[in-house]
Amino acid sequence: MRIAVYLPLLLPLLAPLGARTLSERCEPRLATWLLTASALVLATASTISLGLLAITGLIRVPVLAGLGHWSLHTAQHDDPTELSVALVAGLLLGGAALTAARMLWRRARSLATAALQAACMPAPDDGLVVVEDETPEAYALPGLPGRVVVSTGMLHTLNTSERGILLAHERAHLAAHHYLFVALAQLGAAANPLLRPLATAVTYTIERWADEHAGTVTGDRVRVARTVGKAALAAHDTVARAPGAALGILGRRGPLAGAGPVPRRVAALLAPPLGRHPWLAAATVAILAAATLSTAEAAHDLNALLEAVGAS
């Protein structure tokens, strides 16, 4: 546990670079998968590493050492981890577990609320629900089945072709279960705050994924770009009220989104489509493999340590 246990704690420092590179250079669907997997794997690896470090401190507690029949002298001699490091790791582990549990509970409640609201809505064949509201807004509401909710204000803002683009975009969110990608990435970020850039990037790449789907359906990425900009301007002053916004299912766009992600999405649609860039995928997989192998090696080292102190 001299080096391997610390590597999963250092790799999340690469999250800002990875989030920016994948979201801006990689095809949105692949980027979403890689970003979400990175958040989950790195969060899991770093949490396990904290747990392993915390255990090295527990075996030095005289009461626990007596219960486990461990040799304190051997533990202090064979384990290079400082007791202060183990104590800090234990505190960080407790905080990570509490934060992740709270986020998971809140996310589960939000999904249940969204599903209940969707079940109470009319069930047309196309899944579209139109609400009488002059405020321009549109969002995807997950459920069994999900619904695409559009206000009359948004319908009046867009022409016929633009409405088709908007519906294709929102239906892509439901068909690809984008709310799950957002929830899983945010769970990883809750366990390890260093991974927040990855979770933020996922909320952007699912929008890009839905934009590209709309471009494929309509065959006109330039018109999709214009529709994205037009809908964002119309909804610029809208205050999010629906469960879909709380779930991170964008489609309803607030002022903060209009200040950054929307112009980037429009620019991406006006540029040539992004490729898959296998080297980016390979680099990401290599980093995740390094985190996984390092965690496994650290666990093996701890097991050897426990056998050594138990045999003394």
Rank of each mutant, 00 (worst) to 15 (best):
R2F: 09
A4P: 03
Y6P: 03
L7E: 14
L17Q: 12
E24H: 15
C26F: 00
L35V: 02
L35A: 00
L40C: 03
L42T: 06
G51C: 06
A54R: 03
V61E: 13
L67Y: 06
G68W: 07
W70A: 03
T74W: 13
A75F: 10
H77I: 03
D78I: 04
T81R: 14
S84L: 07
L93W: 00
L93D: 01
L98P: 00
A100Q: 04
A100K: 00
M103Q: 13
R107E: 13
A112V: 03
T113N: 15
A115L: 07
A119G: 07
D125I: 08
D133V: 05
E134Q: 14
Y139G: 08
Y139M: 10
P142K: 05
R147D: 09
R147E: 13
V150W: 03
V150T: 02
L155P: 02
H156G: 03
S161Y: 09
R163E: 05
H173L: 07
L174K: 00
A175D: 10
Y179I: 06
F181L: 12
F181D: 09
V182H: 06
A183S: 14
A191G: 05
A191C: 02
L194W: 05
A199I: 03
A199F: 01
V202E: 09
G215F: 03
G215W: 01
T218D: 08
T227K: 10
V228A: 11
V228P: 01
K230N: 12
V239G: 07
R241H: 12
A242D: 10
I249W: 05
G251A: 04
G258V: 12
V262I: 13
V262G: 10
R264H: 15
R265Q: 15
V266M: 15
L269W: 02
L269M: 02
P272E: 15
L274T: 06
A282L: 11
S294Q: 13
A298G: 08
A299M: 13
N303H: 11
